[in-house]
Design a protein around this nucleic acid. Structure first.
Lengths: 343, 343
DNA sequence: ATAAAATATTGACGCGCGTTAAAATTTTTT
DNA sequence: AAAAAATTTTAACGCGCGTCAATATTTTAT
């Protein structure tokens, strides 16, 4: 490798013996130049390790190759995993993804959208906070920037939504629990942060009624995103007061269940599907940690792969379509029951 | 708010009645213009919501306001929390942080550094993979870009290192365990990904010897970053074969312990510090989930706040010093014992 | 009020690259 | 081998902003 530092495209053009516009074309799309030229450029690249200045590149292009990924809470490994998956796919497609987390804060979510705007991204994959989101700010953003919502839907906002079918989650868990024991009560936060929680509650009620059982929704107090803690405190109270009408508890999500199981353990209450257990606990999401709860958590899994795949594909279609799709599509993927020891 | 869209700084200068160079100065540092001018600019900003083009801004500036944050594995909530903390501090200081995760991959780590280079960041906060890192690539990167390492040290690389004192972790856990029961064996991965693990093992051995006990290191197989699973499998084997020489197990880190506790539970082995328990388990890190293990995990906590604070402060000094510090500093913060139910 | 210091304005250039039109070259077709 | 098609080269402009020097204006000190 030559020691001379190349500082701009013109210089690189002259050392490689190829004209600057052609070099420029190459960097925008290597397949747009003839193979002979391409190999010559790539040989020169080996020699001199020049890289175009991304700021100059993006300054006039109407569309950058940037993609924004926004999740509500990155400390939740569930979102970290989804983000990672999406990120990889964007990179593979030649985009430059940037990851943002709203950290559960409405203001931060707005600020992120603001920053994102000045990044002039080709598109954005956005999992909103939900209830805490500033709907009007997001709506305005989505009008200006091609955006696909995922995980959590804001009706009518964004060019498309990709997520999991909450009804399918609850159908599978409730039907399994009923089939294998007593009908479950439903354990959730009083004011859930996320619209999925509301859909799950509604699904629970409707499925229970369809099966001819009385729905029993237990709402526990707590704000924010410390779900494990909220589940733990709620369970401690419920278990102490011994107000549980059913020996089967279906938690709205795994993180609540993690807290619930910790409380049950502390109370010395045996959880599981063996005859000598006092309680069965199941939940939804198949959180990365739910394999390691005690007992391991019976849950219903998202089709992670499918959701992240489809989100990215939809965004690419949107980008190729110049930021518009014929109509707003909503794709919901089926969930899959994961039988473990807790129920 | 006026409906006319302002498309560049010259236009904004004319509508606000202030010259373009002054506007430019304002955006680079609002305090560098007179108060009267500042309020006039800010009034105009309210009126017209203009924002400078970040690409044009960064193209000629020798130093951008970007800061890169690189962590080895974002799906680990420990790193997610640290990253979030650091991110907030950078924003508060007027920088533009961008978060990257190596996802445990050597190649990805190199690619990230490569991308980071073209972002021309003012500085980088970097927690390397450790053993899997490509030392020479990182060394080269750190020569070009002002970088502070945190969490995991690569000796001699980067302008400074900020982390936790592994000796202090192990001193506290071992001394507590010895004081309150039998001396612990040490449970770890055979080939740890992270230099901290090696330091902890060495500390364990030296502290045990100092206290007059025979060190007993149990190494379990497994590669990668699925620590819980590795801990689980290792514990299943150890507990099945009943080869544990001590009734007290000190895990190298909490994530291994989470797997260990899951295995113990599955085996029906009672863990805790009560007299009727068969085993005590403790670990290090105070992982966000260790409050919710069964039983809750006795561990030793990082001083998160201090580490992220100092990392950021050190980077700011480095940036203000033009990318050079007088000498490479290594700051290690003390750890704090967290007594819970498992030991 | 006047002088000195600080700050703002005017006018202009440069950064590195995208992009375009016309001319030159290469490749493909016939 | 000649004509047609595709690609590259040459030359030049523009993007939005940083920055600088000379000048004008405002603020502070005397």
């Amino acid at each position: 490798m030559s020691e001379s530092k190349i500082k701009n495209m013109a210089e690189f053009a002259s050392v490689s013996g190829i004209s600057r516009p052609t070099i420029s074309k190459y960097f925008n799309d290597p397949s747009s130049v003839r193979a002979t030229i391409r190999t010559r450029i790539e040989a020169a690249l080996e020699e001199h390790d020049y890289r175009p200045n991304i700021y100059a590149m993006n300054q006039n292009r109407r569309l950058t190759k940037n993609i924004g990924i926004v999740v509500p809470y990155l400390s939740d490994p569930f979102f970290a995993e989804i983000a990672r998956n999406i990120e990889q796919r964007c990179i593979a497609a030649g985009f430059w993804p940037t990851l943002f987390s709203s950290h559960g804060s409405r203001d931060l979510e707005c600020n992120i959208l603001d920053s994102l705007r000045s990044l002039k991204p080709a598109g954005v994959l956005f999992a909103p906070l939900g209830r805490a989101s500033d709907r009007s700010v997001i709506e305005k953003f989505c009008k200006d920037v091609p955006t696909v919502l995922f995980d959590s839907d804001l009706e009518g906002i964004g060019a498309a939504f990709v997520g999991s079918d909450n009804f399918s989650f609850v159908a599978q868990s409730v039907e399994y629990l009923v089939r294998s024991g007593a009908p479950p009560c439903f354990f959730e936060m009083r004011t859930p942060a996320n619209p999925n929680a509301n859909k799950r509650r509604k699904a629970y009620i409707s499925i229970m009624e369809r099966l001819g059982f009385e729905p029993d929704v237990i709402k526990v107090d707590g704000e924010g995103w410390a779900f494990e803690d909220i589940g733990y405190r709620g369970a401690m109270r419920v278990l102490s007061e011994d107000t549980l009408a059913s020996d089967t508890v279906l938690c709205s999500n795994d993180r609540l269940a993690i807290g619930f199981l910790a409380a049950a353990f502390e109370k010395g209450i045996r959880v599981g599907r063996e005859p000598d257990s006092a309680l069965r606990v199941a939940a939804h999401d198949d959180h990365p940690f739910s394999r390691f709860t005690c007992p391991s958590l019976t849950t219903v899994a998202h089709d992670y792969e499918a959701v992240s795949n489809r989100s990215v594909e939809t965004l690419f279609e949107l980008i190729e379509g110049g930021g518009r799709l014929t109509s707003r599509t909503e794709k919901l993927f089926e969930a899959r029951l994961i039988l473990r020891a807790s129920a």
